[in-house]
Design a protein around this nucleic acid. Structure first.
Length: 350
RNA sequence: GGAGGGGUGGCCGAGCGGUCAAUGGCAGCAGACUGUAAAUCUGCCGACUUCGCGUCUACGAAGGUUCGAAUCCUUCCCCCUCCA
């Protein structure tokens, strides 16, 4: 295994760990901000690091379309290109197989996408997805899969999952194993315990540096999601990191950590930062709402981010109303800070 | 003084005899957002309301024509442009 993972402690099913990569370590449980297009939107890389984030996501599909994987490689890889010297994990494009359903054709060999930007065609196969991730020089490569949408019939979920398992195997063969880099497999099977079990078995037989649980938080609800984790987690190898893809709200993350998840990513803090949504210790706030107009308080008294240290809700509300770019910057920073504070708290508690 | 253009819901701006409480956009009030086609999207947005294709009041003002007027006619008020 070329990606190290130390289990530093456990608390029930919850785990405290450390992932070692060629670009540094990641303390787990970890939240990974999304830098889909080679940037954590509205944030300087240095600022992302200041929130406590140690690893960010990139995206195979989006970087393939622009600027192109080969171009990033020619610039010295994604770390150098985006000036993020720390670990990077890239999604394989598997989420886009779901989210861009109307712009793609799926066949047993792979997926042909029509670019949402210019209509051009782009082919993604398990092998090409891995190749792109090599070109990006990502530390953690994700298997190319199909993120199964929800709701879904059991036989359709089975078909989708088995396809992802075949692709996982092909990806594993295409992956260049090297020190400080790893490949994760992705468990699918929607909300069906038997399918999740079958998926775990298939992936374990192939052998990965880490295991992700995919196809969740797509509409099934928190209870169903936790239900899937309850049956899936115990089957996964304990000595490898576990990543719950695309999750989630703070409460989702806490519940998933309790069930043994080590890694998370989600658009909510960053997208929310651009859509006036602030996450706080006392719930979510929509700072566009009129009730914040004259509120002199910070978003969160206990937060150390620049938005909370230096600015009032009234000011942030004004920036949002005025569509000032600073609104997105400040709110994103706050949300990422809050998410990292949660993770720090969880790590301290385990 | 003369000639022309125009006054529409908080603002801009369509409509130019009925299907108009009146297209759009903005502003406003909320909601959504979970491996990012997202600084995006959705709903509401005259008053009342049992929330209903219900009632009322509305397109500068007042009259008039018409079964029916924001839309046509008359007078008045106001604004803009050009000429003197």
């Amino acid at each position: 295994m070329s990606l190290s993972f130390e289990l530093l402690g456990t608390d029930g099913a919850a785990r405290r760990g450390r992932i070692g990569t060629a670009h540094g370590t990641v303390e787990t449980p970890a939240f990974m901000p999304l830098g889909t297009g080679g940037t954590v939107k509205a944030m300087l890389p240095q600022s992302v690091a200041e929130t406590g984030a140690e690893i960010v996501l990139g995206n195979t599909f989006h970087l393939m379309l622009r600027p192109g994987a080969e171009r990033v490689a020619a610039q010295g890889g994604l770390h150098k290109f985006m000036n993020w010297p720390r670990p990077i994990l890239t999604d394989s494009g598997g989420f886009q197989v779901m989210s861009l359903k109307d712009l793609r054709k799926l066949d047993p060999d792979g997926v042909t996408f029509r670019s949402p930007f210019d209509g051009s065609e782009h082919r993604l196969t398990p092998e090409r997805s891995i190749e792109i991730q090599h070109l990006l020089d990502t530390n953690i490569t994700m298997s190319f899969d199909e993120c199964t949408s929800w709701p879904v019939e059991q036989d359709a979920a089975a078909f989708s999952m088995r396809l992802s398992m075949k692709w996982a195997e092909r990806g594993k063969r295409a992956f260049a194993d090297r020190p400080g880099y790893g490949l994760f497999g992705i468990v699918q099977g929607s909300v069906f315990p038997d399918l999740r079990a079958e998926s775990v078995k298939a992936l374990s037989a192939i052998g990965f540096d880490g295991y992700a649980v995919g196809g969740l938080a797509v509409g099934e609800g928190q209870q169903a999601m936790f239900g899937v984790l309850d049956v899936t987690m115990p089957m996964l190898p304990a000595e490898r990191p576990r990543y719950l893809m695309g999750v989630g709200r703070p409460a989702d993350i806490v519940g998933a950590v309790k069930r043994g998840i080590d890694m998370f990513d989600c658009v909510l803090p960053t997208r929310g930062g651009r859509t006036a949504q602030a996450f706080t210790r006392r719930g979510e706030l929509n700072l566009r709402n009129a009730r914040h107009r004259d509120d002199h308080r910070p978003i969160d008294e206990q937060c150390a981010c620049p938005a909370c240290r230096h600015h009032s809700r009234a000011y942030l509300h004004h920036l949002i109303r005025a569509e000032e770019i600073l609104a997105a910057m400040l709110l994103t920073w706050h949300n990422l800070q809050y998410y990292q504070d949660i993770m720090r708290g969880l790590r301290g508690a385990i």
